Computed example of a mutant assay.
Amino acid sequence: MAAELPQLIYDGDCGFCTRSARLATRLPVRMRVRPWQEVDLAALGTDERRARHEVLWVSTSGRVSGGAAAVADLFESCRAPWPLLGRAMSAPLVRVLAERVYRWVADNRYRLPGATPACQLPPEQRPRGE
């Protein structure tokens, strides 16, 4: 199902994630930025397991990307010069490095500035938005 605007879906229980999503709103792109806890994930073609694991980018065509690929897709959707960074992040060798850096940040987000106690809990114990 095609959407009018792309969407950036993040973990609303995580302070670091929320701050990062707020920073993303400063990028030169029209998009909806929403916590996964307030989204019908199934309607977007994804699920809670994935949303807890990584940031998601849902294109206007309905394609869902996650993690470093989602960040690259976000940059590619912006006005210049950001698409250059997105394309660079998608290059084969850089993509591997970007995914490793993304995974390290995601796995250690509770240690980073803006973290909340919910960030430190194992995924199965974090608060759930109903």
Rank of each mutant, 00 (worst) to 15 (best):
V55T: 05
F16D: 02
L93E: 00
R50W: 01
R126Q: 15
G67H: 06
R49D: 15
P92V: 12
H53A: 12
P81D: 02
N108C: 08
M1S: 14
L112N: 06
R95W: 14
A115T: 04
R26P: 01
T46C: 12
R30F: 00
E48S: 09
E54V: 08
P35S: 08
E130I: 07
L84Q: 04
S77P: 01
T116W: 13
W82V: 09
R49A: 15
A118C: 01
V96A: 14
V58H: 01
V71C: 11
A69P: 00
G15Y: 07
L97F: 13
L121A: 10
V105W: 01
Y110I: 00
E38D: 15
V64W: 07
Q120F: 07
G15I: 04
P28F: 03
G45R: 15
S59M: 11
A3V: 03
R32I: 08
C17H: 04
Q7L: 14
R32D: 08
A3G: 09
A43G: 08
G66T: 06
H53Q: 13
T116P: 00
V96I: 15
P123E: 07
Y10R: 06
E48A: 12
E76D: 14
T18S: 11
T25K: 05
V58Y: 01
V94T: 10
R22H: 04
A68I: 02
W36C: 02
Q7E: 12
T18I: 04
E38F: 03
A70N: 03
V96L: 15
V94M: 10
L93I: 06
V64T: 11
T60I: 02
L8P: 06
V96Q: 14
A42G: 13
A21Y: 02
A51R: 05
G15C: 10
E99S: 14
A24W: 05
C78W: 13
A88H: 04
G86V: 10
P92R: 15
V101P: 09
L121D: 05
G66Y: 01
R128I: 09
T18C: 07
A43K: 05
R100C: 10
R63Y: 07
G66W: 01
A69M: 06
A98S: 09
A3Y: 11
A2W: 00
G114V: 03
P81I: 05
V96E: 13
S77I: 03
L121E: 09
A106Q: 03
E4W: 13
R30Q: 12
A115N: 04
M1P: 14
T46P: 12
G45K: 12
Q120N: 11
M31H: 07
P35Q: 07
